[in-house]
């Protein structure tokens, strides 16, 4: 278990990270969610020991040097171009105390895991972004750390690379404690026990996905028209507060009002066709905007 208390970082008089307190339970994964500039990287850097907190503490059950227990993947990992993937992973393993006789085997094993078996003897200078990200994961897990810290592990990847990395992380999740940052909510949705919403350095909301949903979720109607014009036309005529996105019109449901019947009675008189009407919940993306948006 890792306990973070009153973590604060001031850069040039500005509180970039402002009094964060949270707990990472062993075996769980936590997402640190916030828009660009919210302080995610700064927070993670303090956890890795790269940055000294201005204030506050990070404690891991009777561990003196927290660097021994963590694996870190920066947002844009940089490797020595003159080392091969295997040499680099082996070296980083040894630096983390993997015994010399096991280091190479262990490095090969994690490179296998991330799918770099065939590229392990290539210099890292030849690697693509996706390969670097996978090598980044390999070096972060080579020493079997207690806590895996990942800074926006999939943000820079294309959809295929993103899927691959998410699958790797899901596997890792089964037997490690993970803390990762993201500004893309879909990632969080798939693999997270605890969400921490960060806004301008402050923790504005925290809890499980379910907690957050219950707290912020609201229902609304989503009506699909054949064109944006028709959706807009409906919005101007409608007596209900309506927002338009492409060919969709949205109507908030407050305290059960309007009912589906009431909505139907308005729709039925429209002179143009309606493709679909449904009652929907907010996407995580929308909750995110609600929590950390303006």
């Amino acid at each position: 278990m890792i306990r973070i208390e009153h973590l604060t970082k001031v850069f040039g008089g500005e509180k970039v990270v402002d009094d964060l307190s949270f707990v990472l339970e062993a075996g769980t994964s936590t997402a640190l969610i916030g828009p660009n500039g919210a302080g995610k990287t700064t927070t993670l850097s303090m956890l890795t020991g790269l940055l000294k907190p201005t204030n506050g503490s990070i404690r891991m059950n009777d561990t003196q040097d927290i660097r021994k227990e963590i694996g870190f993947l920066p947002q844009y990992p940089n490797f020595y171009p003159w080392l091969t993937a295997l040499e680099f992973t082996e070296m980083t393993g040894k630096l983390n105390g993997v015994p010399s006789r096991d280091a190479k085997k262990q490095a090969e094993r994690v490179l296998d895991f991330v799918g770099l078996t065939n590229d392990r003897s290539k210099k890292t200078s030849t690697f693509s972004g996706g390969m670097k990200q996978r090598l980044g994961i390999a070096q972060a897990i080579v020493h079997k750390p207690k806590l895996l810290i990942l800074d926006e592990p999939v943000s820079a990847l294309d959809p295929v690379g993103r899927r691959e990395v998410i699958n790797l992380l899901k596997q890792l999740q089964q037997h490690s404690t993970i803390l990762y940052s993201t500004h893309i909510l879909n990632d969080a949705e798939e693999m997270t026990d605890q969400l921490l919403f960060l806004k301008k350095g402050q923790l504005v909301e925290q809890g499980s996905l379910k907690d957050i949903r219950t707290k912020f979720d609201s229902f609304r109607y989503k009506i699909q028209f054949t064109s944006k014009e028709e959706a807009s036309l409906f919005a101007t005529q409608s007596q209900l507060p309506t927002t338009v996105e492409e060919s969709y019109a949205f109507i908030e449901i407050k305290d059960g009002f309007p009912t589906m019947q009431e909505l139907m009675s308005q729709l039925i008189v429209l002179p143009f066709s309606i493709l679909k009407v449904e009652r929907v919940t907010m996407t995580l993306e929308e909750i995110f905007m609600k929590v950390v948006g303006q």
Binding site: T48, L50, R67, K68, F72, P74, N78, Y80, L95, N96
Partner: peptide, 12 residues
């Protein structure tokens, strides 16, 4: 160039 990062986060 950031290559130091993956060294400095280790217990060196």
């Amino acid at each position: 160039n950031g290559t130091a990062t993956l060294i400095y986060v280790r217990p060196i």
